[in-house]
Amino acid sequence: MVADASPKLPEISAQELLAKVQTAKVDGLSGTVHSSADLGLPALPGVTGGDSGSASGQLTEFLSGEHTARVAFAAPDKARVSVLDNMAERVLTTDGKSAWAYDSAKREAVKLQVPEHKSGKPEKLPQSYDPQAVAKQFLAAIDPSTKVDVSGTEKVAGRDAYKLRLTPKTDQTTVGSVTLAVDSKTYVPLQVTVLPRTGKDPAVEIGFTEVSFAVPAANTFTFTPPKGVEVTQPKAPTTRPDVPKSLPGKPDTAKKPDIKKPGTAANEPTVIGEGWSSVVMIKGVKLSGDGGPVDQFLAGAKSVEGSWGKGKIVTSKMVNALITDDGRVFAGLVTAQTLQDAAAKAPR
């Protein structure tokens, strides 16, 4: 994304701007979000960018390439995302009473009745297309190991914005810096740019190319399936599912102990460490051992061992992962050594 010329704005301290960002709230917005990712991940054998129908294809798609989405939000419980990729459209929308998921390529739609909204909190856009949600995850990592400064101003989506830069001081993370373009009127993050510790090109960039903070009309969130589309209506849950607070490998908004004990589910993620050095562990991962794509993928990975056991390290300029022989996966925006240190602390 290319920003416009730097506007002249009143001076503001990093502490003042940070406080305004953390308390920013709007009743609605709509616009176009563009995201790009180049995490340097090795290709998964047998999976191409167009294989979005498989889980591995969706993962590859999310972690690489460029994507565009039209988004809208209205408090307290209305949200819509229309993802435009490969001449196809995927829509996720809710008007507070019903929710739709539509895939034009498959000509399929799923409709759910939304359980009664009891929390009083607004719905959230899917985080991969919500610059504010992505920004909050990085803001949660701020601690004494983070340098925070206002590095200038810029125009994003035609709006004047301050540039709030977060620079980790620890060498345990692969993140070099995170810059938030903060709207000078609403203090909502308009764009997030993540630079790796090595290299000058952004590893991740997500932001608005156009945005309006007017509350969208109610009919923005309704959906009528096109003629001929197959509609299914699974049984709705009795309660609203909890929205994950963070993405794997990124800081959570809640203060965490050094090790968060897993729940009853065998594969429930466990977070080890805090802030920039946090690592996510998943247990009970079974490798096929049949020479399939995942086995081919790991065949080229470096073998490592330590007090935690044996396994293989998959490295990139941003995301690293340790896959142990006993079925555990450790991953995060951290160095390979940090992963092994986390494995040594982790419960079996």
Rank of each mutant, 00 (worst) to 15 (best):
Lys111Arg: 14
Leu112Ser: 09
Ala133Tyr: 04
Lys124Thr: 15
Ala101Glu: 13
Pro126Thr: 06
Leu125Gln: 08
Tyr102Cys: 00
Glu116Val: 14
Gly120Ser: 00
Pro115Arg: 09
Tyr102Thr: 06
Trp100Tyr: 10
Arg107His: 09
Arg90Pro: 06
Gly120Pro: 01
Tyr102Asn: 04
Ser98Gly: 12
Arg107Lys: 13
Gln132Asp: 15
Lys121Ile: 12
Leu112His: 08
Leu92Pro: 00
His117Cys: 08
Pro115Gly: 09
Pro131Trp: 05
Lys124His: 11
Gln113Lys: 13
Ser128Met: 11
Gln127Lys: 15
Asp95Ser: 07
Asn86Lys: 15
Ala109Asn: 06
His117Asp: 12
Glu123Lys: 13
Asp103Cys: 00
Ala105Gly: 12
Tyr129Thr: 08
Ala105Lys: 12
Met87Leu: 14
Pro122Gln: 07
Ser104Trp: 04
Val110Asn: 02
Gln113Val: 15
Asn86Ser: 14
Val91Glu: 00
His117Val: 14
Glu116His: 09
Leu92Glu: 03
Ser119Phe: 03
Thr94His: 00
Tyr102Ser: 02
Lys124Phe: 01
Asp103His: 01
Lys121Val: 13
Trp100Leu: 04
Tyr102Phe: 14
Asp130Asn: 15
Leu92Gln: 04
Asp130Gly: 12
Val114Pro: 02
Gly120His: 05
His117Tyr: 08
Asp130Ala: 11
Pro115Ile: 08
Glu108Leu: 14
Asp95Gly: 05
Lys124Ser: 13
Leu125Phe: 07
Lys118Val: 14
Leu92Ser: 08
Lys97Glu: 14
Tyr129Phe: 14
Lys124Met: 12
Val91Trp: 05
Thr93Leu: 04
Lys111Gly: 07
Gly120Asp: 09
Asp95Lys: 04
Ala88Gly: 13
Lys124Pro: 01
Arg90Ala: 03
Lys97Ser: 14
Val114His: 03
Lys118Ala: 13
Asp130Thr: 10
Trp100Gly: 05
Leu92Gly: 04
Ser104Ile: 01
Pro115Asn: 11
Val91Tyr: 02
Gly120Cys: 06
Val91Ile: 09
His117Ile: 10
Tyr129Trp: 07
Val91Leu: 03
Thr94Gly: 04
Leu92Asp: 03
Gln127Asp: 15
Gln113His: 12
Lys106Pro: 01
Ala133Trp: 05
Thr94Asn: 03
Tyr129Leu: 12
Leu112Pro: 01
Glu89Tyr: 03
Thr93Gln: 03
Pro131Ala: 03
Glu116Met: 10
Ser119Glu: 08
Asp103Glu: 07
His117Ala: 14
Ala101Arg: 07
Pro126His: 07
Lys97Ile: 08
Asn86Asp: 15
Leu112Cys: 05
Lys97His: 14
Ala88Asp: 15
Glu89Met: 04
Arg90Lys: 10
Ala133Lys: 10
Ala105Trp: 04
Val110Lys: 08
Ser104Asp: 05
Lys124Cys: 06
Ser104Met: 07
Glu116Arg: 15
Ala109Glu: 03
Leu92Ala: 09
